[in-house]
Amino acid sequence: MSNTLIEAFKKRRSQYALGKDLPISQQETSALIQEAIKHSPSSFNSQSSRAVILFGAQSEKLWGIVKEELRKIVPVDAFSATEAKIDSFAAGAGTVLFYEDQDVISGLQQKFPLYADNFPVWSEHSSGIAQFAAWTALANAGIGASLQHYNPLPDAAAAAEWQLPASWKLRAQMPFGSNQGGFKNKTFMDDAQRFRVFG
């Protein structure tokens, strides 16, 4: 079966060998990320997803924040491996910070109390879809990326550094850049273990 969208999904892979030479301009990269998130679905069309797109020194600053927070909790004898991993993210051209606006969620909870318990869950769904959309869009532009979850370690420092609203809750970080390495073959479990089809 051939499907253009599925073929695009197949290009989305975790890239940990990142470089700073993007195949398109920063402006084009930023517009690509914004369009992908803008057209990602959300419950009640809430559009609760927010993003901070950092390039160059600003991205490096983020990973410096993460590194210093990790230094406080990672044992000294294990820190060199942790530092190398964080440096690999900082080696990229930029990072997308994915947020969910809690004011939007609480507003929906007040407006639709019957679904109040569901809105935080649906917000996580929206964030995941936005992340996948942006990642796929980057991959199809020839830009490598991976998805990281160091929150809540850098949350307070990042919010202060980039003067972000208190209602924005950090959900994920996506370092991106040029593909400096290949990809390993991806293996899949048997379809019979994952899917049930009736009808």
Results as ranks from 00 to 15, higher is better:
residue 1 M to G: 14
residue 5 L to T: 15
residue 8 A to Y: 10
residue 10 K to H: 08
residue 13 R to Q: 10
residue 16 Y to M: 02
residue 16 Y to I: 07
residue 20 K to G: 04
residue 21 D to Q: 13
residue 22 L to A: 03
residue 22 L to K: 01
residue 22 L to F: 05
residue 24 I to T: 08
residue 24 I to K: 02
residue 26 Q to A: 12
residue 27 Q to W: 08
residue 27 Q to T: 14
residue 28 E to C: 04
residue 31 A to F: 05
residue 31 A to C: 06
residue 32 L to P: 00
residue 33 I to G: 00
residue 34 Q to A: 05
residue 35 E to D: 15
residue 36 A to R: 01
residue 37 I to D: 00
residue 37 I to G: 01
residue 39 H to L: 15
residue 40 S to Y: 02
residue 41 P to N: 10
residue 43 S to G: 11
residue 44 F to W: 12
residue 45 N to Q: 11
residue 47 Q to N: 14
residue 48 S to N: 13
residue 49 S to N: 14
residue 52 V to P: 00
residue 55 F to Y: 09
residue 55 F to M: 03
residue 59 S to R: 04
residue 59 S to E: 03
residue 60 E to Q: 15
residue 60 E to D: 14
residue 64 G to F: 04
residue 65 I to V: 15
residue 65 I to R: 01
residue 66 V to F: 00
residue 68 E to L: 13
residue 68 E to K: 13
residue 69 E to W: 05
residue 69 E to Q: 15
residue 69 E to D: 11
residue 70 L to Q: 06
residue 70 L to R: 02
residue 70 L to T: 02
residue 71 R to L: 14
residue 72 K to M: 10
residue 73 I to P: 05
residue 74 V to M: 10
residue 76 V to Y: 12
residue 78 A to R: 15
residue 79 F to Q: 09
residue 82 T to V: 11
residue 83 E to R: 04
residue 84 A to M: 11
residue 85 K to R: 13
residue 87 D to A: 14
residue 87 D to Y: 05
residue 89 F to E: 00
residue 90 A to M: 09
residue 91 A to Q: 08
residue 91 A to M: 02
residue 92 G to R: 03
residue 94 G to C: 02
residue 97 L to M: 14
residue 99 Y to M: 09
residue 101 D to L: 07
residue 105 I to Y: 04
residue 105 I to L: 13
residue 114 L to C: 03
residue 115 Y to C: 04
residue 116 A to L: 05
residue 117 D to R: 12
residue 117 D to A: 15
residue 121 V to F: 15
residue 125 H to F: 15
residue 126 S to E: 09
residue 131 Q to W: 09
residue 132 F to E: 09
residue 133 A to H: 04
residue 134 A to V: 06
residue 137 A to T: 03
residue 139 A to K: 02
residue 139 A to H: 00
residue 141 A to H: 06
residue 141 A to G: 07
residue 144 G to Y: 00
residue 145 A to R: 02
residue 146 S to E: 06
residue 149 H to S: 07
residue 149 H to F: 05
residue 149 H to K: 08
residue 151 N to V: 06
residue 152 P to V: 08
residue 154 P to D: 08
residue 158 A to S: 10
residue 159 A to H: 08
residue 161 E to H: 09
residue 162 W to T: 06
residue 162 W to R: 06
residue 163 Q to Y: 02
residue 163 Q to M: 09
residue 164 L to P: 01
residue 165 P to W: 08
residue 165 P to H: 10
residue 168 W to I: 03
residue 170 L to P: 00
residue 170 L to F: 07
residue 171 R to N: 07
residue 175 P to Q: 04
residue 176 F to A: 04
residue 177 G to L: 06
residue 178 S to W: 07
residue 178 S to F: 02
residue 179 N to V: 12
residue 185 N to K: 14
residue 186 K to H: 10
residue 187 T to R: 12
residue 189 M to P: 06
residue 190 D to S: 14
residue 194 R to K: 12
residue 198 F to V: 12
